[in-house]
């Protein structure tokens, strides 16, 4: 199941979206998320959806792949939709036992669902088209001004990038350790809360030890490759705005204008 989460994974295809400057993608994603809360009209949502679809098409990521990513958050979606559906007061349409569904509830639930889906697709689109390294580069550069107030931006970005690299490795490792302990009769599914927490010890101890060992190894490997902090570092792919990035900003601005206008439609 863990493998199904597409947020945070990179999907390599060669598209304009992939080649955009990560700063553009970061800003656009932020603005897109904000725009979802600007509009209240169906036209607005249709327009946002169309924009999203267009970006997916341009990015050449299979639509199916993106939809599969939604599976992982289906429960979250279900809970928030039901809350809105059943708990919004207003004009009653029908009743399911003690639960009553109102016109307003239906409307907010629907909007909520659409917003959430857009939100998830929008942000996963960013991670699918941007390598974690570019993303951290983008953040490092966008937040570079914080350096002046002594925030170690480079170090934080490096840590994020390494974390992203090791998350899949550690997930796989957890799976392996869990199975190995199950082969020794460990039981993770029964017992009360206390027992279950105790049952985690045989997983967590080896996992921590392994994580520390990997950290030590990695630190050594980085040192061996002349890493000595952010000072004097150059980049294989330095961030530089190209014409396409300005065009993208322009398009995003246009999109925002339309979204704002739809408020009054």
């Amino acid at each position: 199941m863990i493998r199904d989460i597409t947020i945070g994974q990179y999907y390599p295809t060669d598209s304009v979206i992939h080649r955009l400057d990560p700063r553009v993608k970061l800003a656009s994603t932020m603005l897109f998320l904000i725009s979802l809360f600007l509009t209240e009209s169906i036209v607005g949502y249709v327009f946002a959806g169309a924009a999203l679809l267009a970006v997916i098409r341009i990015s050449r990521i299979p639509f199916k792949y993106i939809v599969r990513g939604l599976k992982a958050v289906v429960i979250l979606l279900f809970i928030s939709v039901s809350f809105n559906l059943f708990l919004t007061p207003g004009e009653e349409i029908f009743r399911l036992g003690f639960l009553k569904v109102t016109r307003e509830g239906l409307r907010t639930a629907l909007y909520m669902a659409v917003r959430l889906i857009y939100l998830i697709i929008g942000s996963s689109l960013m991670t699918l088209t941007t390598t974690p390294n570019q993303l951290t580069d983008g953040l490092e550069k966008s937040l570079g001004f914080l350096n002046k107030v002594h925030v170690p931006v480079h170090e934080i970005a490096m840590m994020m990038s390494i974390a992203l690299r090791f998350i899949p490795i550690l997930i796989e490792e957890t799976d392996k350790i869990m199975k190995a302990q199950m082969a020794r009769g460990a039981d993770f599914d029964t017992g009360n809360l206390m027992q279950r927490a105790r049952a985690m010890v045989p997983i967590l101890v080896p996992l921590f030890i392994s994580a520390f060992r990997r950290a030590a190894d990695l630190a050594q490997a980085m040192e061996a490759r002349c890493y000595h902090g952010g000072a004097g570092r150059t980049k294989l792919k330095p961030l530089r705005y190209e014409r396409r990035d300005y065009i993208a900003y322009l398009l995003v601005a246009l999109y925002l204008v339309v979204m704002v206008v739809t408020r009054w439609l």
Binding site: N133, L218, M222
Partner: peptide, 10 residues
């Protein structure tokens, strides 16, 4: 434990 980048060329 010695590959730092998230993409081969990086």
């Amino acid at each position: 434990n010695q590959i730092i980048g998230n993409i081969v060329e990086e």
